[in-house]
Simulated assay, not measured.
Amino acid sequence: MKHPRFILAVSLALLAPTAFAATPAATAAAASTARPSTDIVGGAMASPDHGTLVAAVKAAGLVDTLKGKGPFTVFAPTNAAFDALPAGTVETLLEPANKAKLASVLTYHVVAGSVDAATLVGQIEAGGGSATLTTVQGEALTARLANGGVALTDAQGNTARVTATDLRQSNGVIHVIDTVLMP
């Protein structure tokens, strides 16, 4: 019988329906043991589900940072996650006067190091059901197992569900989430 942690990690890894790995080159890279050639920003740009995130990363001046050596773990909200924010929130954050606030929100979705699904599940188990992840922004996210997957809770009490995992990039890993997290 397989260990429940292994089953959950495999289940999470199979949830990756986004376009990060949909291109033939990305699929071939994922199938091999070679390191992916696309960085975090390139991976997000290749996904039709992350156009708003890419625009926000550009507006916040974080492109060079997220193209850097890393490694980084990025919890990437989808376009639908940004669309679910209160009316006008995205437009306001994208204004040049709000660049620092936007950078704070975006870096709240980034953790230093490469934390794959199996590692995250292990951290949750070791923490007695939750794990605290310190973001690059400086504040914490709480990860828990919920409904057969991983849920992240932000400082405001909002919860994001991880919908795709282990989208490996040359400088880290992307996990797709269904909610924008707020510090």
Score class of each variant (00 low, 15 high):
G51R: 02
D116K: 12
V41Y: 00
L145S: 10
L94G: 10
D154E: 15
F6L: 14
G51D: 06
T159C: 13
A143D: 14
G88R: 04
L181S: 11
V74Y: 07
P24H: 02
A118P: 00
A126D: 13
A112F: 04
G88I: 09
L141W: 14
T73Y: 04
L14R: 12
T18E: 12
G129L: 05
A155R: 15
A103D: 08
L8Y: 10
F75V: 08
S47Y: 02
T163E: 14
I124M: 06
G42T: 03
G43T: 02
L102M: 07
V111T: 07
V136W: 02
A55C: 07
T89E: 09
R168I: 04
A103R: 00
Y108M: 02
P183M: 05
V54E: 01
Q169N: 09
A164R: 05
K58F: 00
G42V: 04
P36S: 09
T33Q: 05
S47H: 00
I7M: 12
G138P: 15
V115I: 15
A16N: 13
Q123V: 05
D49F: 06
K67F: 01
L106E: 08
D178H: 07
L106A: 03
H3G: 00
T92G: 13
T119H: 13
R144L: 06
V173G: 00
H3I: 06
A87W: 04
A126N: 11
R161V: 15
M182S: 11
G88M: 12
